[in-house]
Simulated assay, not measured.
Amino acid sequence: MTILGTDTAVADASPAPAAVRSPRRIGRRLLANAKVRIGLTIVAVFWLLAIVGAWLAPHDPNELSPDTLQGPSAGHWLGTTTTGQDIASQLLAGTRPVMLVAFGSGAIATVIAMVVGVAGGFLSGWAEEVLSMLTNIFLVLPAVPLMIIVASQLPQVGSWAVALVIALTGWAWGARILRAQTLSLRARDFVQAARANGESTRRIVFFEIIPNLATVIATSLVMTTLFALLAVVTLSFIGVTSLSDWNWGTVLYWAQTQQALQRGLWWWFIPPGLCIAILGMALALINFGIDEYANPRLRIGSVGAARLRRQGIRPRVGFTPVRRTAPARDPLDERRAG
């Protein structure tokens, strides 16, 4: 569930039962990671813009003016469009729908993935087969074409309708990883002991299984949110959603329609592209930090690597660190040298 192929790292890094910590301690360990802090700071800035962006906008995003195709200036921070609309106001007004759809659909998809994945991995018999078949069906379905078809058939495509469509098409990968982890955990000794003590299935799932899946669930939430961000921008860019509701994809749609790239109107398409890239980078940094917490092989940073070298250990990513020792000297060679 990561961008650069670290999904196996998450899947292989199932935490041992003894390593389960309280949410407060997990939060402190995650916040100690510089990547997580940077990513959360960027996300917090975008949420702040989503809350107060409508009041910070210098103009009405729909207001027409005679100042057409003006570059960035004091009156228009990011220039104007072919109809004189202020691009900075459009971006600020479009931040809230993007954040609500991306994080809302990410949360909904993660909840669906938890229900289907954990239930499919813990249960047995026909229930496991049905949930596994359902996950496989949604895995092979092309997500973007399905979203386009479903969204185009809705009578009114609002923000929450788009979020629901994205959530219903983006939960399968998280469910597959959670199912694999649950299959591994249900055979552990602590789960068998809980069953032998007569604990109910609900208590085992909520107090034994899910706490051990905390990092996997967090990774699924972050990456599903990233998928939802790209999906909502894509749907708006191709004109599936309502063009009267401003978001970053809508700004890019009008820039592409008016051939901003061919005409050199860089202030029209670069700012929304940068917003998408920066928010995506922030989510990726959070995911990398969670991976480093969940997978001990990724925890060795520059400071840890220097400490290991001083101890005579050569750190190698993906392998067990090996201590380098001097070769044993032959006593016969010492006598000859003497």
Rank of each mutant, 00 (worst) to 15 (best):
S236A: 13
V165F: 00
Y293C: 10
I108S: 02
T219Q: 12
G239N: 10
G318Q: 06
V232I: 10
V205D: 02
V45N: 03
L213K: 01
F190L: 13
F269C: 08
A11I: 14
S124Y: 10
T8F: 14
I238D: 00
A88E: 09
P142C: 12
F227G: 15
S152R: 04
W173C: 05
L230V: 11
P145Y: 07
L141I: 15
F206P: 03
L168E: 01
A180S: 12
A214L: 11
A16L: 15
W160R: 06
I42C: 05
L274E: 04
P72N: 00
I313N: 01
G106R: 00
S302V: 14
L178H: 01
V157T: 12
G84D: 06
Q262V: 09
T95P: 02
R314D: 12
V115P: 02
A175C: 02
L31H: 03
G249D: 08
R307H: 08
W55T: 11
P271S: 05
S184R: 14
N287K: 12
P142K: 12
A306F: 03
A19Q: 15
L92H: 08
L64V: 11
N197G: 13
T219I: 15
A193C: 11
T201S: 13
V52L: 14
G5H: 07
V322F: 04
W268T: 11
G75N: 05
V101F: 01
G174N: 05
T68C: 07
S65V: 08
G312H: 06
G198N: 03
F138A: 14
R329G: 12
M99H: 01
F288C: 13
L69T: 10
A143M: 13
R186I: 03
P17H: 09
T81N: 11
A143P: 03
S152P: 04
G84W: 07
I278G: 02
H76L: 06
T83Y: 09
A127I: 12
T110W: 02
A109K: 07
P15Y: 09
A16F: 10
I209E: 01
L183F: 01
I51N: 02
